[in-house]
Every structure is written in C-alpha cells, then in structure tokens.
C-alpha cells in the first residue's frame, strides 16, 4: 500500500475519500462555532437569521458583545496573568532540567528522569486535588501553630499557577532537552579556549542555539496554561479564569457571545501556532 505498489483505482479512491471525510470531521465543530458567532439570533443555532457583529461589538444587554462583556474580559485578563506566571516558572525550571539530564551524571539519574515524566500520566483532576490537599494541610498547620492564615495557600491564583506548572514543566523539559542533545559541545569548548568563563560560554554560545526550543516551549506552555481546565477547576478561587467562566456560561446556556470569544481564542492560538512553526523551522545556519 505505497505509491510504488500497484493498487486498484477503486481502493485508492475510497482511501482518499476516507481521509477527506476525516478532515471534515476535524474542521466541522470549529467551523460551526465560528459561523454562529456571526448569526443575528439570540441562540447559537439554526435558522440562520443574517449576519451581525453584535456578539463582538454589541454594547447593551441582552446583545452584549465580547469587547463590552466585563465578566469575560476579566476572565481573559486573569487567564493571561496565570499563563505568563506559569510560562516563566516552567521555562526556568525546564531549562535547568534539560542541562541537568543532558550534561551531568549523578546518582539515581535514570530514576529521576522517570519521575520527571510522571506528571504527564497523572490525570489533571488528581493533580489538582492532591495539590489542593497538601496546600490546605500546610495552611491549616500554620494556622493551628501560629494563628496566621496564609491566604495564598488557599484556592486562588497562586495554586492555579503551581498546579499548571507541575505538569507543563515536563513538556517544556522534553522540548528543550531534544534541542540541547543536538548541540555540538566543541563549540562551547572553543569559547572556553578563547578565554570565556563557563557561564558566559553558555550564555553567548549555547543559549542562542537553544532559542528556537525556548520560544517553542514558551508558546506551548502559554497555550496549555491558557486553555487548561481540569487542574484549574480544582484549584480556582473567587477569580475565575476564562475557561472556568466560559464553562459556567455553557452550562447555563448562553448567547452567541461565547462563540465570539471562542473565535477570538482560535485566532490567537492560530497566530501563536504560526509563530511557533516559523521559529522551529528557521534553523540557525551553524
């Protein structure tokens, strides 16, 4: 079943149709969401009542658009803050991890490497719940002993960031390690021979080489954090990030304003995806 092996025309047609059908299946739900964000109706469903931009720019209830919906806007802002925090934190730790596993030899290295992979196979809900239990225990113990309530250890932004960081770091580590493995160590040695200190050699030679991986890992971390639901659900406090705010609206039934937010999210993700692909493709010429 490869082009060089003769197969019947019928078989090839059916096969191609199957693949085409598969892509329809992939695109259909996303296309419907986008389409209905322009429907001039109170509900995201047929019949089609003509085009409108109210769900983006509408200023008054009940036709409130995204750009004037304060609840959704504050959700976006909260998600953005969380995603930035998670990205910075996970990128720093992941870079250390990559150097640790690619450059150093130490006791129990294999065991620690497997441990590093474990967060990927822990269900998100469980990860959230276990961190919730632990942080509450710490907070309760501190309160019992010293009568002081550490509010940041109660459900809220900090816990959400930590929960997402806990598994996103693994993914970033894998991305950065893969690139560091391809690095030619003699380049760094050349820098050392030319009189550079170890740190400045890493900073001026190795880090620029890692840049595509760092940017790629940053984009993936940011998106995974922005779109995370399972772990966030368990750790969220009174400030609801966008996914939680949207989830609540979906359950109650909402106007197509949700379609408009979704369309904007898709656009933003697509933009980031294009940047990520572009950065990964453009390999430095050394």
């Amino acid at each position: 079943m490869i082009p060089s092996i003769p197969t019947s025309r019928q078989f090839r047609t059916i096969y191609a149709c199957y693949v085409a059908l598969f892509f329809v299946y992939l695109v259909l739900p996303l296309a419907v969401v986008t389409l209905f964000s322009f429907n001039n109706s109170m509900f995201p469903s047929l019949p089609w009542k003509g085009l409108t931009l109210d769900w983006y720019f509408g200023t008054t209830e009940p036709r409130l658009g995204v750009f004037h919906d304060t609840a959704l806007l504050s959700g976006i802002w909260i998600s953005f803050k969380i995603a930035i925090g998670t990205t910075i934190l996970s990128l720093s730790v992941a870079t250390c991890n990559a150097f640790l596993f690619e450059r150093e030899t130490f006791f129990a290295k294999n065991f620690l490497y497997v441990m590093m992979l474990v967060p990927l196979v822990v269900p998100g809900v469980i990860l959230g719940v276990s961190i919730l239990i632990f942080s509450s225990n710490v907070a309760n113990t501190v309160e019992d002993l010293w009568g002081y309530d550490i509010e940041s250890l109660r459900p809220g932004l900090l816990l959400v960031v930590l929960g997402q960081f806990a598994f996103i770091t693994t993914i970033s580590t894998l991305v950065i390690s893969a690139r560091l493995r391809k690095f030619d160590l003699s380049l760094e040695e050349a820098a050392l021979n030319l009189g550079a200190t170890r740190l400045s050699a890493i900073w001026t030679v190795t880090m620029p080489f890692l840049k595509p991986a760092l940017v790629g890992a940053a984009i993936v971390s940011f998106l995974m954090s922005f779109e995370n639901f399972n772990t966030t659900l368990m750790l969220v406090g009174s400030e609801a990030p966008l996914t939680i705010a949207m989830f609540d609206r979906l359950r109650e039934g909402s106007t197509p304003v949700i379609n408009a937010v979704s369309t904007l999210l898709m656009l933003a993700s697509a933009l980031l995806a294009v940047i990520a692909i572009f950065v990964q493709r453009k390999k430095p010429e050394q």
Partner: peptide
Amino acid sequence: WVSELVRTYGWMI
C-alpha cells in the same frame, strides 16, 4: 491549538 472547551462547544452546537 484550540481549547478543549471550544471543541466540546462545537459538538454541542
């Protein structure tokens, strides 16, 4: 690249 929430919402519609 699209949030799980958006995908699920598409199927709801």
